[in-house]
């Protein structure tokens, strides 16, 4: 009788030794399936929709930096063929106009970049151009904030960033693409 009661006691307990193994298996499954992929990209704010085209003709030509990308992925900057590698430097010079040239922006906050492309332009080229123009502004912001606050733009407080941005506002106006080179 004494033996039997001891047996009963043993069978009443569930062996939890394998619990860890089961949990490990599940853990490994989730470890493998987890994709912590971060979505990064070029953030753009589109203009609100309006029926009539904005009239860029009203602006002074010296304040407009027009960039055209055609269906052959070639660049035309302010009426002259250009290379994408020079775009950033050129745009920076145009916006800040350090030598007060007659044909460049009156002031950084008056500069407008006008971007136009064909329907046949490759997205890759378009994004590259957009990226360079954005980079030009970012570098200008960096320079301005270094001068004013002594550190890079991204380390500034929100209000300080706003202050810098209001001095050099990012204005990239995109025209409707022309109907060339669509597949």
């Amino acid at each position: 009788m004494g033996k039997k009661s001891a047996k009963d006691r043993i069978s009443n307990e569930i062996n939890a030794g394998s619990m860890a193994d089961i949990a490990f298996l599940l853990l490994i499954f989730f470890l493998v399936t987890t994709t912590i992929d971060v979505d990064k990209g070029v953030l753009v704010k589109l203009p609100p929709w309006s029926e009539d085209e904005p009239d860029i003709q009203k602006l002074k030509t010296r304040n407009v930096y027009s960039v055209l990308v055609n269906a052959q992925n070639q660049l035309l900057v302010r009426g002259e063929p250009a290379d994408i590698d020079d775009l950033r430097e050129n745009a920076k010079e145009f916006i800040s106009n350090p030598r007060k040239m007659e044909n460049m922006a009156e002031a950084p906050n008056k500069a407008i970049i006008s971007l136009k492309n064909d329907r046949g332009t490759k997205y890759k080229t378009y994004l590259e151009v957009y990226n360079e123009l954005k980079a030009a502004y970012r570098e200008l912001w960096d320079e301005a904030s270094k001068k004013k606050f002594g550190k890079d733009y991204e380390f500034l407080e929100r209000t300080q960033q706003k202050e810098i941005r209001s001095g050099i506002p990012l204005v990239i106006s995109e025209a409707e693409p022309t109907n060339f080179g669509e597949e």
């Binding site: 953030l43 753009v44 492309n117």
Partner: peptide
């Protein structure tokens, strides 16, 4: 090519979805 993207952007603007992120 930008053609399809232009149509897409127009449609997004018409629907009031203005914050766009070109994934890269």
């Amino acid at each position: 090519t930008m053609g399809i993207l232009a149509d897409l952007k127009t449609q997004l603007r018409k629907s009031g979805q203005l914050l766009v992120n070109y994934s890269a």
